[in-house]
Computed example of a mutant assay.
Amino acid sequence: MDPVNVLIEASDGDVRSLPVSTLVLTLIYALFGTLLTSAVMAFMTEQLLSNRLGLRRRRPPRRNSSMVLVMDGKHLGNRVAERLQGDNLSIVRVHQSDHGEGVSLETALRWRRRTPLQGGALLSRDLMANLRLVLELQEQHPQARLVIATKHLPGADALGDLLGGITVIESVGIAADALVATAFGEEVREIRRVDGSNLMLVRYPIGAKDILHDLSVSRLQCGYGVTVLAVRRSGAASWQLLPKLEWPLNKGEEALVLADIKGLRRVEQGAAICPRWRVRFRVIEHSVQAFDTQQCLARHLNMPPGQFKGLINGEQHLTPPMDHDLAKQLMQALRRIAVESTLEESATAG
């Protein structure tokens, strides 16, 4: 709507009858309206073109935050960026080609003046390009943690040491370990790479004929080399975190373990390392420690208390072979109730 035409119609076509101040205000109003309308249309057009053509301008990371570069990788880069954003890090997606997602490397490095570079993940399929860029970044930012991903490189760890602390991750090896673990019939929840090994978070449902049935947490950890993080009883909604060493794994329960592929293979093959530690103890018959001793032995050895009644006769006895940590815990428990006990290593595994 043109306010000048409205005033002209209101004055019967005689503009000279209108005050000069009214005409000036009318022109200013018209000019302001035109500029505001143009700005709104320009903003809407820019948003539509940015969304359609992918021309959205990338904003620099926040000041005083920690910047992490994620270069290429497509779907893998998206997953890495999502996981890192939860750690209060400013993630900058970098592309090497003109059609990649994110900003160019030159633009990202200009932003380091306002935001320090904490790390970088080079996920391109071109290993040589990754090596070239990671060496440049290492020279400019020696404090940054840098990671290279490659499809298949048997000497990945050795190459990382040769490059001076740059981590080289072999994606094929990680995928192969996860595939083998899944082939065992177990559920792989997550994979973490620690000190050159792929550690998998695996959920084990315990069945009646399962090899882990009736084993203690200590036997699972020491015998197979896996770490039990949590156990859930049958029908329970919550997990028991870091269960006790003497906790028996019964039918219907679930165990959440952290293991590498070697530990999972030992569980699958039933190739457990035999226990070789015993506790020597002596309890005087009819003493006040007799009942407590039977309960303590039953809890640690997962046997009925009455089975140890014949050992309360004042003579020295040896427990069946146990894992070191569980045997040491039993010895300390017996000493707390004033029972004479010592820890001994068996000459042969029993």
Results as ranks from 00 to 15, higher is better:
Thr227Cys: 07
Thr227His: 08
Thr227Asp: 05
Leu229Phe: 05
Ala230Val: 07
Ala230Met: 03
Val231Ile: 13
Arg232Gly: 03
Arg232Lys: 15
Arg233Pro: 00
Arg233Leu: 05
Ser234Trp: 09
Ala236His: 12
Ser238Asn: 08
Trp239Thr: 02
Trp239Arg: 03
Gln240Asp: 07
Leu241Cys: 03
Leu241Trp: 15
Leu242Glu: 12
Lys244Trp: 03
Glu246Gln: 14
Glu246Arg: 09
Trp247Pro: 00
Pro248His: 02
Pro248Phe: 01
Leu249Gln: 03
Glu254Gly: 00
Glu254Leu: 03
Ala255Cys: 05
Ala255Gln: 02
Ala255Asn: 02
Leu256Pro: 01
Leu258Asn: 10
Leu258Ser: 13
Ala259Ser: 15
Ala259Ile: 08
Asp260Asn: 12
Asp260Gln: 01
Gly263Pro: 00
Gly263Trp: 00
Leu264Arg: 01
Arg265Tyr: 10
Val267Trp: 01
Gly270Pro: 05
Ala272Val: 12
Ala272Arg: 14
Ile273Lys: 14
Ile273Met: 05
Cys274Gln: 08
Cys274Glu: 08
Cys274Ser: 11
Arg276Ala: 14
Trp277Pro: 00
Arg278Thr: 04
Arg278Ala: 08
Arg278Tyr: 03
Val279Pro: 03
Arg280Cys: 12
Phe281Met: 08
Phe281Cys: 04
Phe281His: 04
Arg282Met: 11
Arg282Val: 07
Val283Cys: 10
Ile284Leu: 14
Ile284Val: 15
Gln289Lys: 14
Ala290Arg: 15
Ala290Val: 12
Ala290Glu: 15
Phe291Cys: 04
Phe291Gly: 05
Asp292Tyr: 14
Asp292Cys: 13
Gln294Ala: 08
Gln295Pro: 02
Cys296Met: 14
Cys296Arg: 10
Cys296Leu: 15
Ala298Leu: 08
Ala298Tyr: 10
Ala298Gly: 09
Arg299His: 13
Leu301Glu: 09
Asn302Ser: 10
Met303Gly: 07
Met303Ile: 02
Pro304His: 07
Pro304Arg: 08
Pro304Gly: 06
Pro305Asn: 06
Gly306Asp: 09
Gly306Tyr: 10
Gly306Trp: 05
Gly306Asn: 09
Gln307Val: 10
Gln307Met: 11
Phe308Glu: 00
Lys309Met: 11
Gly310Glu: 07
Gly310Lys: 11
Gly310Phe: 02
Leu311Arg: 15
Ile312Phe: 04
Gly314Ile: 05
Glu315His: 12
Glu315Thr: 12
Gln316Thr: 08
Gln316Ile: 01
His317Cys: 01
Leu318Asp: 14
Leu318Pro: 02
Pro321Met: 08
His324Asp: 09
Ala327Met: 04
Ala327Glu: 03
Gln329Cys: 07
Leu330Ile: 02
Met331Cys: 13
Met331Ser: 06
Gln332Thr: 07
Ala333Cys: 08
